[in-house]
Amino acid sequence: MSKEKITICEDLADIMPPEYQELVATATYGKEDRGWRDVGSSKELIESHSLCAGCPESIAFRYVMASVPAPEDTVFVGSTGCTSLVFPHVAIQNIHSLFGNQNAIASGLHRALKVRFPDQQKDVVVLAGDGATVDIGLDMTLQSWFRQEKFTTICFDNELYANTGGQESGLMQRGFVSKMAPAGKLFDKVRLPEIARESGCHYVACLTVSKPNRVEKVIKNAIYVSRVFGPSFVQLYTPCILEIGKQSMEGLDEMKDAESIGGRFVFKEYMTDEVKNFLKQKDDEDKARKKAAKNK
């Protein structure tokens, strides 16, 4: 959707809510170099969120929305959970249908968009929690990768079911005591990045959201790769501060701990050589373009 399409007709402009007016005035639709640096100064497509104060998921949302390369032609697919409370605030069309079927919805959606807009790049991005991705929806997550569906899957991993009150999930660490795991979780955190790599994802990244520039890079890589090669997967640690007993201001520390040496979320990236070359080339082009723009 171009910016032109969201422009308000003059007669109705005064009755439109301010957030919409602001979207029209400052949205980064169509801006080639949009990224996390726009957060705060421009519209990163998200209005006030409805998550807990200090929730790392809320900042993860902002970074993701700011990093999506072409929001004007992107459709998000979500699933039930904390993320589904945020999407109504987002200025990108989003589908929430059921719990766990997000990769099935995305499969049908991106194929339909391909049929309807054969000459246009439409990005489909799945954004769901760990319960939806790994437990109830694992079948559909994996099958979409096996089928080489060309869209990106992002998992907000908070290592438990947060929206329903902190139950055990497959991505929870072993031994953690939670609801439905009263004696501590009995098996290991599911190794989803490795499963994704072996299931046909061409680009896989696992990280926390402590470093916005890294999140931006990874999201852009994943979407670029999905356009050309096939499925890509990004797992982001967004700790549930509430359920792990942290204060609102402690989310960042928790993520930094988790990504330090020996932690569960040390940054890792898997990609094929082909993808590596492709991303390198894209980087070089971007640099050259930015340099040229600067010299103008």
Partner: peptide
């Protein structure tokens, strides 16, 4: 037809149909 494939279960198939219909296709 524009597209056709085998899904992995009826629950997934109906989700795939929904995704396509959300995207404006006759399904």
């Amino acid at each position: 037809l524009g597209d056709y494939f085998r899904g992995e279960s009826e629950f997934a198939v109906m989700g795939q149909c929904a995704g396509a219909a959300f995207g404006g296709a006759r399904v």
